[in-house]
Amino acid sequence: MNINLTIIGQIIAFTFFVVFCMKYVWPPITGALAERKKKIAEGLDAADRAQRDLELAQEKAMSDMRKSKEEAAAIIEQANKRANQIVDEAKEKAREEADRLVTAAQAEIDQEANRAKETLRAQVAALAVAGAEKILEASVDESAHAQLVEKLAAEL
């Protein structure tokens, strides 16, 4: 247990190790630790931000969906209205067409009836003349009695 030069040797060795540690060991290790701490903090921040973004996106999606539902409902309503309108218009047109057809038919019928009456009247006049001839057994002057026959025919 002698005190000797070993003390000096130990002081030199100790100084060397401390200086080496201070220059080449401590800074890189604590640097890595600090950097990791920063990374973790950033990671947590990013997670928070992502959570917030997700909430915002969900909210936006909900409101978008609500809006498009409203739009769809409006479009359907409009389409229904238009369809009713089209049906009404078609009904109207059909009714007009029917009226027109009925009127035309009526006119034709009237025309046909008139024409038949005319023909009938002419034939009756002839028949009456022929009948009268037969009855009189004599020839009748057609031109002298034409006025009489026509009067007869008009009465038919």
Binding site: F17, C21, P28, E35
Partner: peptide, 18 residues
């Protein structure tokens, strides 16, 4: 002492924040 700085220096050289 050298054992100490050898181990610690080895780690310090390759220290990663990952």
């Amino acid at each position: 002492g050298f054992f100490f700085i050898w181990i610690f220096r080895k780690v310090a050289k390759t220290a990663t924040s990952g």
